[in-house]
Design a protein around this nucleic acid. Sequence first.
DNA 1: CATAAATAGGATAAAATTATCCGAAATAAA
DNA 2: TTTATTTCGGATAATTTTATCCTATTTATG
Lengths: 144, 144
Amino acid sequence: MFSKACEYGIKAAIFIAINSYEGKRVSPKEIAEEIDSPQAFTAKILQELVRHKVVSSVKGAYGGFEIDKTRIDSIKLSQIVKAIDGDKIFNGCGLGMEICNENHPCPVHDKFKTIRDELKYMLEHTNLQELALSIKTGNSFFKV
Amino acid sequence: MFSKACEYGIKAAIFIAINSYEGKRVSPKEIAEEIDSPQAFTAKILQELVRHKVVSSVKGAYGGFEIDKTRIDSIKLSQIVKAIDGDKIFNGCGLGMEICNENHPCPVHDKFKTIRDELKYMLEHTNLQELALSIKTGNSFFKV
DNA sequence: CATAAATAGGATAAAATTATCCGAAATAAA
DNA sequence: TTTATTTCGGATAATTTTATCCTATTTATG
C-alpha cells in the first residue's frame, strides 16, 4: 500500500506527537529505536516531513523533532502520505495507466475508484491526535 | 497499490481473456504491444501466471497464451494479485508491522482493516469475464 | 567565544524491483 | 524427420527504493 519510507514516516510522526504532548523533543535515534527502523534512513524521512511542515525541528543542543501541541489534531494522515509517497495513491489508476478517468476508464476504474475514495476519505479524516491517544489508552503499537 | 508486474499481469490476463473468447492464442509480443509493457518482462510475468494456473500456455508453432473459455468467469482478480504480489495486500499491516491483529493492533489497524476488507472483497468478486466484456462493450482500455 | 549537541544534506552502498538477452525445450506443420 | 515457431528459464543489466556514512551547519550553554 505505502512505501516503507511512508510507513516509517507515519510511525515517526505518531511517536513525535506523543512526546510533544509531554513537551519532549525526540531525536532520530530515539525515534528509530522506538519504531524499529534504520536510523539514518529515518532521519532522511524526518527531513522530508519537516520540509512539508508536518513536523518541526530544532537544531543544536537540546534540539530535536516536535509538533506544535495545538496543531497535532489538525495533521492528517493524508499529509504524511502525500509528503512521502506523493499523491499517486489518491489519484493514480489501479492499473497504472497514464490516462484513466470517467471518460476514459481502465477496466477496473469504477471498482478501484470506490476503494480509493474511501481510502482517501479515511486518510483525510484521521489525525495524529487520535492515533497518539489510541496508544496512550492502552492499544499496543511500538514494541511488542 | 500493486507492483508494476502485477499491473502488467492483470492487463495481460484481460487481453488474453478477450482473445480466448475469439478462439485466438496470443504471444508475449502481441500482449506487450497491446498493453504497452516491456515484452521480456511481460513474458516472465506470464510464466508466473501459468505456474499459478491463471492462464495456460501452448508451446511451439501456433502456440501462445490462452484461457479456457469456460473458466474465464471463474478467474478472480485476487488470484492474479496473489500470484504476482503475494497476499501482503490482503493480510499485511498498513504500517508494515510484523505483529498486527485484533489483540495487538497497530494505531491504524481498524481504519485500514475496513479498507482492506473492501479491497479484498472487490478483488475476490471481480472476474476476468466482466472485465473483458466491459471493454468489448465500448469502454476504452488498451491504446488511447 | 568556545564547546558540545543536534539536525541538514551530500555521497555512497545495498537490496529489491523492473527490464533485457540468449539458448534450451517443446510442438505443429511441411 | 526436419524446420520454423513459440514458451521456458537462467544470467545479467538498469533503475528505484532502502539504507549507511560522513561532514557541514546550527544552536544552547558554560
